[in-house]
Design a protein around this nucleic acid. Structure first.
Lengths: 218, 218
DNA sequence: TATATAGAAATTGTATACAATCTTTAAACA
DNA sequence: TGTTTAAAGATTGTATACAATTTCTATATA
């Protein structure tokens, strides 16, 4: 039996709290407070904080506490543009290595994404979404590329504001399904250029959609 | 006065030990052992280990210890190819933002690189090298891109084997200076394609050179 | 009112003791 | 000889106490 360590539990719970906006951007959290909330000592909390800082989800200020990151518009853009570069590269590497088994697996993931959307299971939706975006890098077998794609994807999830005040119909999720389908279609045709284009289009669509939903007037 | 924390000191010292091959690839190090060597408690050592693992320099195996990474040939290739992608993208972003002050600064860095090489000051050489490679991303102002370029550059440094058994004339350093000059020349001409090509050439040259120096027969 | 300052409070940083878990060793057994 | 098993040892994982540092607060002073 492999018992999960407290520092892992703490890491997961804090990350989840940020994604679900239980902890909002800019909010201050101290080791002591989290330690009380999660009913464990500060030691595993500190370890979790270190990891979260490394992933850019919180900022650690000595003797002040940790602050949930509140990224600027520019930072959001920067991340999405970088994701275009990385995921396009992954597609380029993977496109000629993908077997029919790989494509079957992608189809399965797309189905699960639809199901999660219909069930309105947002956490499951995000989980499947991450798997879809990481899949080409996984096939390519470049673990450094994979790790960075996953990190940036996770970072994006924290600021997708799925549960913000303006949330109504989750437009980006509606668009996400057909856009992912476009990417997979291009991959199946072994069309590198089309794959890249579809990835770029999907990423920019997500970003634009986010910008529209979070602007005050529209 | 800003006193440096023990965990920072530990992090730096361990990293340096890996780069200088005082700790060799595959070697096992325990918290206790480092704790005794650096004469501080395990607490800051643990924090340092976490950071080093996140950067891919050591691998943490529960209840066994930390192991200095010993990357395969494929992983080395993967990292260098990814660096080509990232640094090319940085050049593309920066090329039209660079002012004459930026170019002056790059020239200064190139001079310092030559000086460090002539002085046979390897640590200084690596430091300047890192600054040169990061400079376009710095100018571009995308902190996520910058961070990843720095991380991968540092990772590469740990496996450049500057001080391995076959080390004699540090060929890659000899080549490095003119190759960096090529990149800067292309940037000055605002030639995106040429910049990318020069970056790719430099990166592949470093990789090939490394492969030759570390192969047993040649 | 604004500013400086001292002390209190809060928070992280570190050391250490102990618990939990895993690995190694050696003995028992087939 | 090889395999299982149990106990010992090693190592990390966690809690906690205390130290160091910073921030906050209230008071004094101009």
């Amino acid at each position: 039996m492999n018992k999960r360590k407290n520092e892992e539990i703490a890491y997961e719970k804090i990350k989840r709290a940020i994604m679900l906006k239980r902890l909002v951007a800019g909010q201050r959290v101290t080791e002591d407070w989290v330690s009380n909330e999660l009913e464990m000592s500060r030691t595993p909390i500190r370890a979790a904080f270190t990891k979260l800082e490394n992933e850019g989800l919180i900022e650690l200020v000595p003797h002040r506490g940790a602050f949930v990151c509140s990224p600027s518009d520019k930072e959001l853009e920067d991340v999405f543009n970088l994701r275009i570069v990385l995921e396009s590269y992954a597609a380029e590497l993977a496109v000629h290595q993908m077997t029919s088994e790989h494509f079957q697996q992608m189809d399965r993931l797309l189905d699960e994404e639809v199901k999660a959307y219909e069930d309105k299971d947002y956490e499951e939706f995000l989980r499947i979404n991450a798997l879809i975006h990481a899949y080409p890098a996984q096939v390519a077998g470049n673990r450094f590329l994979l790790q960075e794609i996953q990190r940036l994807n996770q970072w994006s999830d924290c600021y997708l504001i799925l549960r913000d005040n303006f949330y109504t119909t989750a437009m980006d999720e509606v668009l996400s399904v057909p856009e992912h389908l476009e990417v997979v279609k291009a991959l199946k045709k072994r069309d590198v250029a089309a794959s890249k284009k579809a990835i770029e289009a999907h990423m920019l669509s997500t970003l634009t959609d986010l910008a529209e939903r979070t602007s005050i007037f529209n």
